[in-house]
Structures are given as structure tokens and as C-alpha cells.
Deep mutational scan, measured.
Amino acid sequence: RYTFRTRGPEQMKRVVEWARRQNLSYRVEVHGDEYIIHAE
């Protein structure tokens, strides 16, 4: 189980790509310009 905090969509997309390659399920929360990605 991982939690990532990123700023801006570019970093968020990179984390999502990584999670997909690992076959993890993930969800993204948006708080202003901060993205929180939960993957497991």
C-alpha cells in the first residue's frame, strides 16, 4: 500500500503510469494543486 503526494498533473501522471505497470489499483484525490495518489 502506497501513498504519494505530488504537485501538478505531470508528476501525478508519472505516478499513475508506475502504478499501472505494477498492476496496482489506485485512486487519486485532488486538493487544490496537490494530488494524493493511493495505490495498492
Score class of each variant (00 low, 15 high):
residue 33 D to Q: 08
residue 10 E to Q: 10
residue 16 V to G: 01
residue 19 A to T: 03
residue 4 F to W: 12
residue 8 G to R: 14
residue 13 K to H: 12
residue 6 T to Y: 03
residue 40 E to V: 11
residue 3 T to A: 04
residue 36 I to V: 12
residue 20 R to A: 08
residue 25 S to C: 08
residue 18 W to M: 02
residue 11 Q to G: 13
residue 8 G to T: 15
residue 10 E to T: 09
residue 40 E to Y: 15
residue 16 V to L: 12
residue 7 R to Y: 10
residue 36 I to W: 12
residue 24 L to N: 00
residue 7 R to T: 11
residue 3 T to I: 14
residue 23 N to D: 05
residue 23 N to W: 04
residue 38 H to M: 09
residue 13 K to G: 06
residue 28 V to F: 04
residue 32 G to S: 04
residue 19 A to R: 00
residue 35 Y to S: 03
residue 34 E to S: 08
residue 32 G to W: 04
residue 26 Y to V: 15
residue 24 L to F: 10
residue 7 R to W: 07
residue 21 R to D: 07
residue 4 F to C: 11
residue 7 R to N: 10
residue 9 P to T: 13
residue 9 P to G: 09
residue 1 R to Y: 11
residue 10 E to P: 13
residue 29 E to S: 07
residue 11 Q to E: 13
residue 24 L to G: 01
residue 7 R to L: 07
residue 27 R to I: 13
residue 1 R to A: 09
residue 5 R to A: 04
residue 14 R to K: 12
residue 34 E to A: 06
residue 1 R to D: 05
residue 32 G to F: 06
residue 24 L to H: 03
residue 5 R to N: 04
residue 22 Q to W: 14
residue 10 E to K: 10
residue 17 E to S: 08
residue 17 E to T: 06
residue 24 L to V: 03
residue 24 L to P: 01
residue 6 T to I: 14
residue 11 Q to R: 08
residue 5 R to W: 09
residue 32 G to V: 04
residue 4 F to N: 00
residue 19 A to H: 02
residue 21 R to H: 07
residue 21 R to W: 05
residue 11 Q to L: 09
residue 15 V to Y: 10
residue 18 W to R: 01
residue 23 N to G: 15
residue 37 I to H: 00
residue 18 W to K: 00
residue 13 K to S: 08
residue 12 M to Y: 07
residue 35 Y to C: 03
residue 6 T to P: 04
residue 18 W to S: 01
residue 38 H to D: 03
residue 30 V to T: 09
residue 16 V to A: 03
residue 19 A to D: 00
residue 26 Y to D: 01
residue 14 R to W: 08
residue 25 S to V: 13
residue 14 R to P: 02
residue 25 S to W: 14
residue 40 E to R: 10
residue 21 R to A: 13
residue 26 Y to Q: 01
residue 26 Y to W: 13
residue 4 F to S: 00
residue 4 F to G: 01
residue 27 R to F: 12
residue 18 W to G: 00
residue 34 E to C: 13
residue 30 V to M: 12
residue 12 M to K: 03
residue 33 D to M: 08
residue 5 R to E: 03
residue 10 E to V: 08
residue 2 Y to Q: 04
residue 22 Q to E: 08
residue 16 V to W: 02
residue 12 M to I: 05
residue 10 E to H: 07
residue 36 I to R: 03
residue 36 I to N: 01
residue 3 T to R: 08
residue 7 R to S: 10
residue 3 T to G: 02
residue 16 V to I: 14
residue 32 G to N: 07
residue 23 N to L: 06
residue 30 V to F: 10
residue 30 V to A: 08
residue 24 L to S: 01
residue 27 R to M: 09
residue 11 Q to H: 10
residue 19 A to Y: 04
residue 34 E to K: 05
residue 32 G to P: 03
residue 2 Y to F: 12
residue 15 V to N: 00
residue 21 R to M: 11
residue 12 M to H: 02
residue 31 H to T: 07
residue 28 V to N: 00
residue 4 F to M: 03
residue 15 V to E: 01
residue 37 I to N: 00
residue 1 R to E: 06
residue 3 T to S: 06
residue 26 Y to G: 00
residue 10 E to R: 09
residue 28 V to I: 13
residue 3 T to L: 11
residue 30 V to E: 08
residue 5 R to T: 09
residue 4 F to D: 01
residue 12 M to R: 03
residue 12 M to P: 00
residue 28 V to M: 04
residue 24 L to R: 03
residue 21 R to N: 10
residue 7 R to E: 05
residue 18 W to F: 03
residue 40 E to I: 11
residue 31 H to I: 14
residue 2 Y to N: 02
residue 2 Y to R: 05
residue 19 A to M: 12
residue 16 V to C: 07
residue 8 G to L: 15
residue 12 M to N: 01
residue 26 Y to I: 14
residue 19 A to I: 15
residue 17 E to L: 09
residue 11 Q to N: 13
residue 40 E to A: 11
residue 11 Q to T: 09
residue 6 T to D: 01
residue 10 E to L: 09
residue 6 T to S: 04
residue 39 A to S: 03
residue 4 F to Q: 00
residue 6 T to K: 02
residue 2 Y to V: 06
residue 18 W to D: 01
residue 33 D to N: 11
residue 15 V to M: 06
residue 8 G to C: 15
residue 8 G to V: 15
residue 31 H to L: 12
residue 17 E to Q: 10
residue 36 I to L: 08
residue 15 V to T: 03
residue 38 H to R: 07
residue 3 T to F: 09
residue 36 I to A: 02
residue 40 E to Q: 12
residue 22 Q to T: 06
residue 12 M to L: 11
residue 29 E to Y: 12
residue 27 R to L: 08
residue 39 A to H: 03
residue 11 Q to F: 06
residue 8 G to Y: 15
residue 1 R to I: 11
residue 34 E to G: 09
residue 9 P to I: 15
residue 12 M to A: 10
residue 30 V to G: 04
residue 9 P to Y: 15
residue 8 G to I: 15
residue 2 Y to A: 03
residue 23 N to F: 08
residue 20 R to L: 12
residue 28 V to G: 00
residue 31 H to S: 12
residue 13 K to D: 05
residue 37 I to D: 00
residue 13 K to R: 14
residue 36 I to Y: 06
residue 26 Y to P: 03
residue 35 Y to H: 04
residue 39 A to K: 01
residue 32 G to E: 08
residue 28 V to A: 02
residue 22 Q to F: 12
residue 25 S to Y: 12
residue 27 R to D: 05
residue 36 I to K: 02
residue 16 V to S: 02
residue 23 N to V: 03
residue 39 A to Q: 01
residue 12 M to W: 05
residue 35 Y to T: 04
residue 20 R to D: 05
residue 31 H to C: 12
residue 35 Y to D: 01
residue 35 Y to G: 02
residue 1 R to C: 15
residue 39 A to V: 15
residue 37 I to Y: 01
residue 25 S to T: 13
residue 3 T to V: 14
residue 17 E to Y: 06
residue 6 T to C: 15
residue 33 D to I: 05
residue 26 Y to M: 04
residue 3 T to W: 06
residue 21 R to L: 11
residue 30 V to D: 04
